[in-house]
Design a binder for these strands. Structure first.
Lengths: 333, 333
DNA sequence: CGCTGCCCATGAAAGGTTTCACGTCCTGGC
DNA sequence: GCCAGGACGTGAAACCTTTCATGGGCAGCG
């Protein structure tokens, strides 16, 4: 802002107290609704405070109480459309509880994740909601001492919010099997993520039972495909492929199309996550829907609880997923 | 975190000083690289600090210096894929300058915007990057006293980062005209946003010059179309439509398709923003590309400058846009 | 009428850091 | 051999708030 040369310092509590002709302590009590203040005095103080446009200095408050009223949200990659809606819900839910959120995007790098956490704890966040990049890495050590809930991964010792990934993998596989597919390929998410492994393992197990797993490859959570994934697709061995994420599914569909094949006529694809794009894509993507909003809200709730009751045993809540059937799967006659 | 019952308090500067056998002042100087401290002493202090795992208490620091090392980012709607990439760049750029970012999502509501700002200034953010919902509303008053740069809107008195919307509108119209379209409709963004008006006005002016503006309607920045927009589309009076945002374009294409018409064979569509979906959509969307990343980086830079030089005259920087031609426009023969 | 207790209100300390103003000691120049 | 001044280091105040311990006054009870 190029307006005022001299930033008009905000009124301090001391000034309010003076203006109201009461002590600092009374002013503080009146404003925080604590302590014992006469009804008349309280109202008077409040009025004066309002006139002066008093806003408490959070830094000072934080120094006394150790509570900053801020929570940190650590996400891998805002660019993956899965995360913004998560962030949105977290931000809102936090706001209704009076918290602001520091959002950091770790860009998929473990060092960034480390730095992000440091920055956050330096700022004295009261709690952290963390969507880890990988299961290993410089995990637990970092967040020592700050209430934390972990999304997606079942990290020991933390409160955890997850979806039933295994069930999702199974659902995807069964859907394909039921549609008459036999030769099925699997593109799972990064090795490092247990949630990705769970999806894949369940899918693979199910496929093996009643069908034929023709290949299994890994890919980052990204539109861009690794060479080995592209090759698998090019082998044309599968009539259907299960992917570990919608983003991967969309990447795969692009590649399939570039091979001159059609989805779903030549090959069927099922995704995971049900990101907004899924239904906008042509063909609309059959995928596994996770209740992201609910999960985000649950994370905030869990964090609030954890912040006020540090001693409690950890909890783990698992949300159900469901298959939403759209146009990317062909049923074989 | 369900781990430690007793949060292991972090070491304080005083403790570091004592452990190192120096005064508080020296410790402070050593750690901040300020003041005059002997080389040997400094190293010693740093070593001790590291051993104790000392991390400065930002709240206390903030109280002294008035600087929190945090900036606020106020965005209308994370759900619009235009914003996450913006947010991502801002967060990263801020981080390299040592700032953390409070992200708030105002959900398109002016009251939320108000509350968000309050929360932010209460937290004592050093600066704010603000993407306003509308030009009017409870604007300038709110951010009084906090360095602010505004994105997208040319709010008087603030540093401003924009794209050349008018040029974008013109480009879009010319592209259609050059492709032989005559009867053109325009779906612009919300009235309240001057950036939306600029796009539309330039487009309309250009269309009028050499073609025929068959209708002009407004729509929120959303996939969902207002009734009047749907009606306009249903009139089938236009062979091409210019939209104020890719999101609107995609919504329009869906509707057009639901009418049994084809994009681009029956009607051509051009978007604005070049969000990630644009090129993934089928057909890939011809649109106006804004250099979001550059703009976000510029915003952070402008804010940093503003924060250290409050007196300077305001600046306004306007980025060029360009048309990216894809598959949603048919050239008439 | 005096005392017990309660209600209100206040002074003051504490919390972790930065930074000003000052002191000590040593070095080098004359 | 002295003194000026630089280099290094320190004590203490200040930032704004919360909260503990304390005190004054008044009502009601005995």
């Amino acid at each position: 802002m190029a307006k005022s040369e001299d930033p008009p310092r905000r009124a301090t509590l001391k000034e309010v107290a003076k203006a109201a002709g009461v002590s600092l302590a009374s002013a503080s009590y009146a404003i925080n609704g604590a302590g014992s203040v006469g009804e008349a005095t309280r109202e008077h103080i409040l009025k004066v405070a309002a006139e002066l446009g008093y806003r408490p200095n959070q830094s000072a408050k934080a120094m006394k109480t150790g509570k900053t009223g801020a929570i940190g949200l650590i996400l891998p990659d805002l660019t993956n459309p899965f995360f913004p809606s998560l962030a949105q819900v977290v931000i809102q839910a936090a706001r209704v509880h009076g918290y602001s959120v520091f959002l950091t995007d770790t860009e998929g790098s473990a060092e960034e994740e480390q730095r992000a956490v440091n920055l956050l704890v330096d700022h004295g966040v009261d709690g952290v909601i963390w969507f880890p990049i990988a299961d290993d890495g410089p995990v637990g050590k970092l967040i020592e001492g700050v209430p934390t809930v972990v999304l997606d991964r079942n990290l020991p010792g933390y409160d955890v919010i997850q979806a039933d990934y295994a069930d999702g993998g199974r659902l995807a596989a069964e859907h394909l099997l039921a549609a008459g597919h036999v030769n099925i390929g699997v593109i799972s998410g990064p090795h490092a993520a247990s949630s990705a492994r769970q999806r894949a393992e369940a899918a693979i197990a199910t496929v093996r039972e009643r069908g034929n797993l023709v290949w299994h490859v890994h890919n980052a959570y990204s539109l861009d495909l690794e060479p080995e994934v592209a090759q698998a697709l090019e082998s044309r061995a599968a009539t259907a492929v299960i992917t570990g994420a919608d983003l991967i599914a969309i990447g795969a569909m692009r590649h399939i199309r570039s091979l001159g094949q059609s989805v779903p006529d030549d090959v069927s694809v099922v995704g995971f996550d049900d990101i907004p794009w899924a239904q906008l894509h042509t063909p609309a993507l059959t995928t596994i829907d996770m209740p992201v909003e609910d999960m985000a809200a649950a994370a905030v709730e869990a964090l609030i609880r954890r912040m006020s009751a540090r001693g409690e045993p950890r909890r783990r809540v698992v949300f159900n997923v469901e298959l939403v059937s759209r146009d990317s799967v062909r049923v074989l006659t």
